[in-house]
Design a binder for these strands. Structure first.
Lengths: 364, 364
DNA sequence: ATTAGCACTCGGAAACCGAGAGTGCCAACA
DNA sequence: TGTTGGCACTCTCGGTTTCCGAGTGCTAAT
């Protein structure tokens, strides 16, 4: 059901204008907006058809037209001009990216913050579900009542903790435990750390003080934490900038849904590969709370076969083009920095691929 | 300028009622609310006087009365009945506190979350400015191109990091560096880590690879991070529950102020001692953005001579009594768990001290 | 196929209105 | 002197009415 070239142009014009103003757009506005050389009457006819095709709708007779989700979909897939960011913009982004990422690895938090600032919508970042294991194990003897556990994980991060003991241990015991754990606990998945294993280690170490239990529970906690996807949300207040969320109730509903974090798991599941950007428009979202908002998602290579995810939430009237460009750029930048693999050339710009998520929103 | 007992009762009634309903309260309501045995006319007279004394105001002639900041102040200082939490409530809180705090030390985040959930207002938690130093220093040799830095800090936390080298080092060098750093860098304040020191260490270690620089910059970063007060904000969306923030602009302004985090430093400065709860009402706040909101702050002993801080932000019409009780309880619970000192008896309940912060809000 | 013109529709802002809550004040009273 | 009932007055709030204009759909002319 291809639609005419002119219809496309008109549709694009409507969406662009509506994104800009958040007001229903009328035939006159389009006629004047250049690009088309015809009168408002002609436009009106076309608009009427676009409505009956399902791409547009009118809030009421004698108001302008507003894009339907289907209209947005068309716009995102075919119409919108893929924005490239201006050179200054990408410079700026690179600068901030570099600055942020030098610092320690509260990356997720920073990434989401950055995305939110950049797009002026609420943004969230989350890490993937992984299968990190312990790669190396050290115990450092501090004094008779204290020792330090140091875990080097397979993703090359290091976790450590001071253990304080009510009883005293000798240096030898610590050394023994250390090598035992190194022998028994490295390379094992979260789930492989069975009570049986722990128990046998305890016996092998001749540990009557319960140190084995303490240590292994730290290992389990750490692995669990490292492997559970975590999310971070920033800038939820920016929602209030959008006229469609001037209704505090609506805003509140969405905001508490977001900060509730219920989206984490489903989102993590759907982590796609490569640098594509996905757009979920209105009813295309599964979550009830998002049915009349849109989400733009990009994923990035976080190294160690891990993909992280950055997403932005906004009204269906979202500046898809700009947001997609920015997210894509951001994701690429992160991949470049965090990704384990071969670093793409520094000059690489935002390759922008929009993949259609097709699921039953109504059509005719 | 003492005011009569009856005036106090009336004022208290007005505040209570207003807190409950968010509507201006009239003479009749108070007359009926028991406690006073007089007619609405009498109340009216008293109310009029309370207005001219500055404790109340009317939004317009022929609306009920609303407390002024000064009225709230009076209420908080003298009138409000110090709520004790019901047994179930404190059980519940203890339960959640325990659960949260067993886990690792993303405490601040959790604390703020908890406070927000408990009070149903946005809440923030922050750590104090401290003077943490390195207590012990270890380098773990992993392989020719990798080693791990382990820092044990004076507050008994442990920080670690994997360092990846483009060149190879031998185990001996690592050992040498380790003992050098242990000798030179322990016990020093952030500011004492001068380039001179670093340089001399570098020479002493005969380090031509720049390892010293890498290590010492990690030390500096870590110390800096540990010593800088950090804040965490939760539940900002709860603001939208409050009728006074139904205006999205107002809400947005406050929310972005809060998530901007500009309050961190001033707040950290004012960290008081002990378990008192402080209340800042409307214009008593220094920050322009808070001039018509109120803040309730409690501080807790975070161990190692450190005090953390929990705060709650809401409209001036805040349920001071309940919030203060909850924060106080929370702070006490945290102190008990985190505090280095002698643990107070488990049964200790919320001792509630409200300290007046007196600064020039107008009076007559 | 396009366009100009025109009658029509409908939502939203402004104007209007009445009801009710609450006040201030006065005069009577204990 | 403090308290109370009464009453006129004020002001906001909610609903209704009115009015305007943007934008449409349709028709007839090009």
């Amino acid at each position: 059901m291809a639609i005419s070239e002119r219809k496309k142009k008109i549709l694009a014009a409507v969406v662009d204008e509506y994104i800009r103003t958040a007001e229903p757009v009328g035939s006159k506005t389009i006629a004047q907006s250049g690009g088309l050389n015809c009168s408002s009457a002609t436009i009106r006819n076309e608009l009427a058809e676009l409505v009956s095709l399902g791409y547009l709708e009118q809030p009421h007779t004698s108001a302008g037209r507003v894009p339907t989700p289907m209209g947005y979909r068309m716009y995102v897939n075919e119409l919108m001009e893929k924005q490239k960011m201006s050179l200054e913009e990408s410079e700026e982004m690179n600068r901030r990216l570099n600055q942020k990422l030098q610092e320690l690895d509260d990356t997720i938090k920073d990434v989401s913050k950055l995305a939110s600032q950049l797009t002026d919508y609420p943004a969230l970042a989350l890490t993937a579900q992984t299968a990190v294991t312990v790669k190396r194990f050290d115990l450092i003897y501090v004094d008779a009542n204290n020792f330090i556990i140091v875990l080097m994980l397979s993703n090359n991060s290091v976790k450590s903790k001071l253990v304080h003991l009510p009883v005293s241990v000798d240096q030898d015991m610590i050394r023994r435990l250390s090598s035992l754990f190194n022998a028994n606990f490295t390379g094992l998945a979260d789930s492989a750390l069975t009570p049986v294993l722990i128990h046998s280690t305890e016996r092998a170490a001749d540990d009557s003080l319960g140190l084995t239990a303490v240590i292994s529970s730290f290992v389990m906690e750490t692995l669990h934490e490292a492997n559970t996807p975590t999310a971070f949300l920033s800038g939820e207040n920016r929602l209030l900038n959008q006229p469609e969320f001037r209704d505090p109730d609506k805003a509140h509903k969405l905001m508490s849904y977001l900060s509730g974090g219920g989206y984490v798991l489903p989102a993590a599941e759907s982590l796609g590969g490569s640098d594509e950007v996905r757009v979920l428009i209105g009813p295309e979202n599964v979550a009830e709370e998002l049915k009349d908002s849109s989400v733009v998602i990009a994923s990035y290579d976080a190294g160690d076969n891990t993909r992280g995810l950055i997403g932005v939430v906004g009204p269906t009237r979202m500046d898809y083009s700009a947001v997609a460009a920015k997210l894509s750029f951001l994701a690429a930048g992160l991949s470049r920095r965090l990704g384990g693999g071969e670093a793409p050339p520094e000059g690489m710009h935002n390759k922008l691929i929009i993949k259609e998520i097709d699921d039953g929103h109504e059509r005719r």
